[in-house]
Design a protein around this nucleic acid. Structure first.
Lengths: 367, 367
DNA sequence: CTGAAAGCGCTTACAG
DNA sequence: CTGAAAGCGCTTACAG
């Protein structure tokens, strides 16, 4: 029991309003809650009483009965990164337009944190969830959600065997496009820097072997960075170029530091690449830091194509050629699909692949 | 009534668990809710029953009784901007560490949206609110909150007469520092580009007159961009320089576009400045875009000091000298203060001014 | 330690 | 159209 220094919060309830208006709680509830029918004069009395009491509905009580909270839960990797920040804004735009609140958590791409987030959101009874799954293979918590009938939409990644709506970028095509653009400009030794965490099927070397051989690869549940690597390999195959595994750089984690750490040895090697493809915004920033420290100039010493169109890329000198994915629209699409499911609309699980666009600026030299 | 294609969500309640375990709901509630005392064997029975039924507590029901939701509400300007994205991550860090959820909304710096956000969050019964107020003069909705005893912490801005905890940057000192740094480097004509929306007391000209004359100015509830302008003027006064109002650029809104639009006329004027001070991350990006399009080189043609240390500033060529404010730490501090209030700790309203730091890189030339 | 009962603030059949 | 009553899924005194 703590004494509040300011006014006691005398929250008025529907009972208080009903008493003040001289009607039943049912009638007060009907006008305040906007359901059922009420005569004009009662309506007026109730509204006046509510007004003077400063009545504010308690969404908790309503939700407990209706089973709906009008709240969406989101599990993002890191709301601080430009990718998630934009996606979240997209989600927020449509949530807000529909009167939904947004409960947001970070997973830091760790499934243990993701599981905790989902549990928290589920206990808070969100009407649906948007998640960027940390693990594309196993995700019992997400399958459980599905089994409980909780609407779920995935962004950026799929989960093996989880049949739910999903929005992502066509990463393979986008990467293939970027790398073919470099090849067309005359580049033959092209480095790629990607996260490539969570390898499966024997790691990077084995994956490259299969990709280079053109073996069938289950691409749906591949991580985006692996998909982009696959696009890189395919571009080489199409153009009749061989892939040098020494040019495939794995950062190993999702951070600019990791990318920055891995670039120097490649760029100072005997057979350094003439061009670099960095597979997302964070990898791009790490690579740019490394190139800057090495005093390697763009595109004089090395050409570069990045992924994600970040603000600085347009005013950097030279302008950075990049693959732009519509982050905001991805968030909006995901939220819209989720709301449809919440409304009870039924379709087979949908996969929306958003178009990624090559934006040419000045970071690619013709050889 | 819609048919679910998958398993019916047979959500188990505490009643179901109690029945399965052969105890009362009170006992089941005690072990599941972690309150009161229970014998070891009953505890075991209940836990086993809960496990096999896949019981998940309904936080709504608990909150309705306890009056606590363990949820924080946040009204940010735009979660997509680097400033808010970082602040939010800071808030999220401490919320999560304390088992709190986060309900996040955008105001787009418009009070009408802010009012709606606050109302939504209040109805959802958040335990406390962190807001970046859009209007520093009038904010009835925030005063109401305070009067209702809802814990409230302000970030970045104060509200006139609203005595609540607050965390911000010492904007005047930071701007003064930046501008004196330019003056020390020999610059005499220094342009400033700032938002400067919501003028009061007669607009920009009148404000400048008062600032230049050294008239007392109520600085607490000044908008950050006005505070930074004041620091700019003070630096001139201290260094014995006069202020040329033609060098004070008002973008008029919080967007890179607005900043970009306003720079060219200044830079192409007869008496163009030799240096620019951009007063936040967004203004900085807009100014950089404009300079890039005008082919004005840094620091050869013009020197620049920005505000907020954005990722690209370190690898841009030249490196960008900037005032860095600890955005993440600001969010963390705000959340920590809010949690203290929620716990019932009582202090007089606290204002935490975070230190801003000048990071010297290569964008300032010595004249 | 345990259970029966009341109640949080609403909405929802059910009568009238 | 209106009200008395029951109930959403929990927690909290209150007895035993």
């Amino acid at each position: 029991m703590r004494g509040l220094p300011v006014a006691p919060k005398n929250k008025a309830t529907i009972t208080d309003v009903a008493r003040a208006a001289g009607v039943s709680t049912a009638t007060a509830g009907r006008v305040l809650g906007g359901y059922g029918h009420t005569s004009e004069d009662k309506k007026e009395q109730v509204l006046k009483a509510a007004q003077s009491l400063g009545y504010r509905p308690n969404a908790l009580a309503r939700s407990l009965i209706t089973g709906k909270t009008r709240t969406l839960g989101v599990v993002a990797g890191d709301i601080q990164s430009p990718f998630y920040a934009s996606v979240l804004r997209g989600i927020s735009n449509v949530a807000e337009a529909n009167g939904f609140g947004l409960l947001i958590t970070n997973s830091d791409e760790a499934q243990s944190k993701e599981v905790r987030s989902v549990e928290l959101l589920a206990q808070k009874q969100v009407d649906g969830l948007i998640v960027t799954p940390s693990d594309t293979r196993k995700a019992r918590h997400l399958h459980n959600l599905r089994a409980m009938g909780v609407p779920l939409v995935l962004i950026d990644r799929a989960v093996a065997g989880l049949m739910v709506d999903r929005v992502a970028t066509d990463n393979i095509a986008a990467a293939e496009h970027a790398v073919r653009h470099l090849i067309a400009a005359g580049h033959r030794r092209i480095g790629i820097v990607a996260e490539l965490v969570d390898e499966d099927g024997g790691g990077l070397a084995a994956f490259l072997d299969r990709a280079i051989a053109g073996d069938p690869i289950e691409t749906e549940t591949l991580y985006p960075s692996w998909q982009r690597l696959l696009g890189y390999v395919r571009a080489h195959r199409i153009e009749g170029l061989s892939v040098d595994p020494r040019l495939t750089l794995r950062a190993g984690s999702y951070s600019a530091q990791a990318a920055q750490a891995v670039v120097p040895s490649l760029m100072t090697a005997a057979e350094a690449p003439t061009a670099l493809f960095t597979t997302d915004g964070t990898m791009s920033e790490g690579a740019m830091r490394a190139l800057n420290e090495l005093q390697i100039s763009i595109p004089g010493d090395v050409s570069i194509i990045c992924f994600d169109d970040l603000d600085w890329m347009s005013f950097h000198r030279p302008g950075i050629t990049t693959i732009s994915q519509p982050r905001l629209a991805m968030g909006e699409a995901a939220a819209r699909m989720l709301l449809e499911r919440i409304r009870g609309e039924e379709y087979p699980p949908r996969t929306v692949l958003m178009p990624a666009e090559l934006i040419e600026r000045g970071s690619v030299a013709r050889l």
